[in-house]
Amino acid sequence: MVFVMQRLVKMTPFLFGIGFIAPLLIQIMALGGFAGPWGLSRAAFGLAFGAGWGLLAVWRGRWL
């Protein structure tokens, strides 16, 4: 149980990426009337961006 929780906590930047950054980006893009780049939908781009940034934060240990 402790191991599972530790892994979960370690992965929270990724979860934050898909749970919060992705929908935030999608809604900001919708508010500004921006379409997703490279023919992607806003949702696909938001999820890719959020998941990617989150994984990078897990790997690097920093958001920036």
């Binding site: 929270t12 934050f16 749970g19 919060f20 992705a22 929908p23 935030l24 999608i26 809604q27 900001i28």
Partner: peptide, 13 residues
Amino acid sequence: LAALSILAWTGHA
């Protein structure tokens, strides 16, 4: 994290 995600994915990000 859960609260932010729920709010965000229900359109209130």
